[in-house]
Design a protein around this nucleic acid. Structure first.
Lengths: 76, 76
DNA sequence: TAACAATGGGGTAATTGGGGGC
DNA sequence: TATGTCCCAATTACCCCATTGT
């Protein structure tokens, strides 16, 4: 993973020359996949999805990781 | 299929310039069509309806795809 | 009658959701 | 208000087989 270069006023941050990252809450990821927030936490516990921890212990998920899972080639 | 561009706070996400998507569970789709969940599963396996997989393997269906099928644009 | 497609039921294992409490 | 965690019932995926209709 690329190192963080610049943090923007809107909360996004660059990890490379042209890449901008965004962190999603468990609730946001849950709605994206059509499941509950607890299920997303379960995914993190079982290693199905990478996660970042806030200093208080809550989980955040990279938008790029979510998009990768959504694009996962399991069409059927 | 268009690549995902942006994920919104309400769980929708754009797959193109102006498109927003939502996902339905097998049970919901089954209730909509008046069939059993297993039949919806079979539709996905036979390619009659597109589906997205959760990281754990369960299927979710795009509301727009269901609406399209309900609209009755079938070949026969 | 045979062949075929579509649907549902049974069984099993894995996943999920809801309640409760923190 | 949202989240992290635990427990339990409901849902789902996947297999095979019976039924129905063409």
């Amino acid at each position: 993973m690329s190192p963080i270069r610049v943090i923007n006023p809107d909360g996004t941050f660059t990890t490379g020359p042209e890449t901008t990252e965004r962190l999603l809450t468990p609730g946001e990821v849950a709605q994206i996949f059509g499941v509950g927030p607890k299920t997303v936490n379960r995914w993190a516990l079982t290693g199905r999805i990478p996660s970042v921890r806030t200093p208080s212990g809550q989980r955040r998920y990279r938008e790029t990781d979510v998009i990768t899972l959504l694009s996962g080639d399991r069409s059927s």
